[in-house]
């Protein structure tokens, strides 16, 4: 399987670090070999960057309340494919970009464009044929019968592909994950952990 590489020619090592961290925090990857995660992160990034640009056919809805839900955008496939853009989150993102002096990486209006592109990938992977290609590219063999192989799903890689696609199609200097981390820190959101326990 060859993956056609689009721009940028080399990924910022820090961008890949962000992607590796996202994979490591995804359930089912607890304690997986960091080198394997890095390989998957790279493969998913290249795969996302190689996806053909497709217009998004989903209905677009703009809503407030993204900060409360901790979301920038959301794609839902039912009842009709809908892409929700949280305007308060987008506004905050633009402000954080300006404050951090990241305009070179994320031009004005690029957050909105990136969010649309990101969710378009989810829609595309959900309905289209590309998902099987991603699985083959990742090459995570879960079962072998003689020469036949069954490739497994690698949780979290679609998210990385979506960010990479957005980065390439919107011409961003750095991965949207860098922006996500900055927003998360700005909002002081608790990180994702898998051991929240509560008893009454």
């Amino acid at each position: 399987m060859t993956v056609v590489r689009a721009t940028p020619a080399t990924w910022h090592p820090d961008d890949i670090d962000h992607a590796v961290r996202l994979l490591a925090a995804t359930p089912t990857h607890e304690g997986r070999d960091p080198d394997l995660l890095r390989q998957w992160a790279l493969t998913a990034t290249e795969f996302g960057a190689s996806l053909p640009a497709t217009p998004c056919h989903a209905r677009i809805v703009q809503l407030q309340g993204g900060l409360d839900e901790g979301l920038l955008a959301r794609y839902t496939s039912r009842p009709a494919p809908t892409l929700t853009l949280f305007t308060d989150s987008v506004q905050l993102a633009e402000r954080v970009i300006a404050e951090n002096g990241w305009r070179d990486w994320y031009p004005p209006g690029s957050v909105r464009a990136a969010a649309l592109a990101h969710e378009a990938v989810h829609a595309q992977l959900h309905h289209g044929p590309h998902r099987a290609r991603l699985k083959r590219a990742l090459g995570h063999v879960v079962l072998r019968f003689g020469r036949r192989r069954v490739y497994g799903h690698v949780a979290g890689t679609e998210e990385i592909a979506a960010h990479a696609y957005a980065q390439v199609t919107c011409g961003l200097g750095r991965s949207p994950l860098v922006l996500t981390t900055a927003l998360s820190e700005h909002l002081n959101l608790p990180p994702l952990t898998h051991s929240d326990r509560r008893e009454n």
């Binding site: 925090a25 959301r74 949207p176 996500t180």
Partner: peptide, 12 residues
């Protein structure tokens, strides 16, 4: 159906 997001929460 399915739901996919761009979450503001990140990994530790």
């Amino acid at each position: 159906g399915v739901e996919h997001t761009w979450s503001l929460r990140t990994a530790p």
